[in-house]
């Protein structure tokens, strides 16, 4: 479905970003993986069904992002797809609740998700427009749709990504650049490993469980479909949204959460 297309994935070395790269390459796209961990991104790119390229890049630093995008365009001849996936997905610094959070931590968290999305989009958009069209897929989170007392900054940043998705969809529509967001639910990635470690410390009934067991217990209680969401789930939707099969879908945000957010008012 993506034959002949060139896709750039931020945070592509592991987790959701790497899964998106695998699925997109499997559908015929050539990939560029931007990640702060250049060595791991390099390994990942070399092992793709259609081997891709990797660039080591701090996605919060504008000149690094611009240089990485330029290097990609020079080597692959242009860009059709941008996946904004980078972000640590956890409270920066001491993080946590508003009362415990420093202003610096607040800024850092918003920078992780929102600033990186802004910078990558700004650097890539001219190249998509130059091709006469393209697609941007933003990886947000269901925390951007509901409240999160323990991760308010991350929730605000993800809600901001969803809002930015809608604004960019209108802004870029005349150039036939589509912009959509995916809100993953419970996917077993490093942020969840850290979160369950916190739950183990703070919730007495979880004290005897391993992080992975805590994760599965949370899923049993919270997810209507009763199972965890996978990297593959998110990657399949990202590939669909990036493809021409979605040529008239723009400005949408779609949850991959097994129905989790249906239970909460929003």
């Amino acid at each position: 479905m993506l034959k002949g297309k060139v896709a750039l994935v931020t945070g592509g070395a592991r987790g959701i970003g790497a899964a998106i790269a695998r699925v997109m390459a499997g559908q015929g796209a050539r990939l560029a993986l931007l990640d702060i961990d250049g060595a791991e991104a390099e390994r990942m790119a070399a092992g793709l069904p259609l081997p891709g390229m990797a660039v080591a890049c701090d996605l919060a630093v504008e000149r690094e992002v611009v240089a990485a995008v330029d290097a990609t365009v020079e080597r692959l001849g242009g860009l059709d797809v941008l996946v904004n996936n980078a972000g640590l997905g956890r409270p920066a610094g001491r993080g946590g609740r508003v009362d415990d959070m420093s202003a610096e931590d607040w800024d850092a968290q918003l920078a992780q998700d929102l600033r990186t999305t802004f910078l990558s989009t700004k650097a890539v958009a001219p190249h998509l427009k130059a091709r006469g069209g393209g697609a941007i897929v933003n990886i947000a989170s269901i925390t951007g749709l509901v409240g999160s007392p323990t991760q308010p900054a991350q929730a605000a940043a993800k809600a901001g990504m969803i809002s930015l998705t809608k604004s960019l969809a209108l802004d870029y529509a005349p150039h036939d650049v589509r912009v959509n967001a995916i809100c993953p639910g419970f996917v077993w990635t490093r942020p969840w490993e850290r979160m369950t470690a916190d739950l183990k410390r703070t919730v007495p009934e979880f004290a005897q469980l391993a992080p992975r067991e805590i994760f599965l217990e949370v899923i049993k209680r919270r997810v209507p479909l009763g199972r965890e969401q996978t990297l593959e789930d998110v990657a399949q939707l990202a590939a669909f949204l990036a493809s021409d099969a979605a040529r008239n879908i723009t400005g949408q945000w779609i949850s991959v959460d097994g129905g989790t957010t249906l239970r909460q008012a929003h």
Partner: peptide, 24 residues
């Protein structure tokens, strides 16, 4: 896509195929 197993964890969603009409 929604009917396929690629969407096995997508449920309760409503998705506009409208070229952005409802964003305005």
């Amino acid at each position: 896509f929604l009917a396929s197993d690629a969407a096995m964890n997508i449920t309760g969603q409503w998705i506009a195929v409208d070229g952005g009409i409802t964003l305005r």
